[in-house]
Amino acid sequence: MLFHLSIAAHEPRHVAEVIAEFWGGEALPFPPVCEGCWIAFAGDERATAMEVYPIDTRLKEADGDADAYGERGHEGRYTATHAAIATILSQDEVLAIAAREGWPAKYRKRGDQFGVIELWIEGRQMIELLTSEMQREYFATTTIANWKAMLAAEPVSA
């Protein structure tokens, strides 16, 4: 189960507000890491959330008995970090929001198994959004047993 995920954005508040909109949730400031951080809450029974940090933030390990902290000053255009998140909206509604924001988005079928809307926040950070129908496909196909069967059919080298 995913409780929360963090991403970086040029406009953390705006990105958190749009993600919260996809979920029907709420975006709020998130000061524990560093100034300018926001968090999008889904408002669901799992307390699902996505933290959105300023683009030049990196997390650092603290010495001794202290929490990790955010440090500003590191930026890159793309990252391997992404998330697949549920949305209460329809595909058309998601694509309309993406168009409004000027963010690239398109429907994709992952491995002929389940559909996603591949959305590029600020044109650089991928998020996969799954509508109700796409979520049903995902749950029906993305299981440990199915993953093992796929690996057995097409072995990969470690």
Score class of each variant (00 low, 15 high):
Arg58Cys: 08
Met1Asp: 13
Ile127Ser: 01
Thr143Cys: 09
Val116Ile: 13
Trp120Ser: 10
Pro31Cys: 03
Glu101Leu: 05
Met150Leu: 06
Ala153His: 12
Trp23His: 12
Thr142Val: 15
Ile127Leu: 11
Ile88Met: 07
Ala66Val: 02
Pro155Ile: 00
Leu28Glu: 13
Ala158Thr: 08
Glu71Val: 15
Glu35Pro: 07
Ile97Val: 03
Gly102Pro: 01
Leu119Glu: 02
Pro29Lys: 12
Met1Leu: 10
Ala140Asn: 15
Arg58Gly: 07
His82Gly: 03
Phe30Ile: 02
Glu17Ile: 04
Ile127Tyr: 01
Phe3Met: 04
Met50Phe: 10
Val52Trp: 06
Ala140Gly: 11
Trp120Ala: 10
Glu35Lys: 14
Ala158Pro: 02
Ile39Arg: 09
Leu59His: 12
Pro54Tyr: 08
Val18Ser: 00
Asp92Pro: 00
Val94Asp: 02
Thr87Glu: 02
Ala9Met: 05
Gly43Gln: 09
Glu26Cys: 09
Ile121Val: 12
Lys109Gly: 00
Gly24Tyr: 09
Asp56Glu: 08
Glu45Ser: 15
Arg13Phe: 03
Pro29His: 11
Phe41Tyr: 14
Arg124Pro: 00
His82Trp: 01
Tyr53Arg: 05
Ala149Cys: 01
Ala9Tyr: 06
Gln125Cys: 07
Trp38Asp: 01
Ala84Ser: 10
Glu133Cys: 05
